[in-house]
């Protein structure tokens, strides 16, 4: 089974907090209210909720891939 990785772009983030509401194990907000990924490699049992978080993100700041994102 391939591991799923998640990354988030603070430049795109509008602080809606839908990701954190859906999956607080993976997403947090910093002092500016911007998205922070706590665990880029997603535990299999959280994958569905991380996909939901990405779907709900209004500014499409969350990317899901099959490897870690550089930078």
């Amino acid at each position: 089974m391939t591991a799923v990785w998640v990354s988030a772009d603070q430049e795109r983030c509008i602080s809606g907090g839908r990701c954190m509401a859906a999956t607080s194990e993976v997403f947090d907000q910093d002092e500016e209210g911007l998205v922070v990924v706590l665990t880029p490699q997603v535990a299999p049992e959280l994958e569905d909720r991380v996909r939901k978080a990405a779907y709900l993100c209004p500014s499409r700041a969350i990317r899901i891939g099959d490897g870690p994102t550089q930078g």
Binding site: S15, G17, M20, A21, Q29, E32, G33
Partner: peptide, 14 residues
């Protein structure tokens, strides 16, 4: 403008 306000309406601050 949105960035001025985001920190004060984030899920955490709410």
């Amino acid at each position: 403008y949105r960035r001025y306000l985001n920190p004060h309406f984030s899920l955490k601050s709410v």
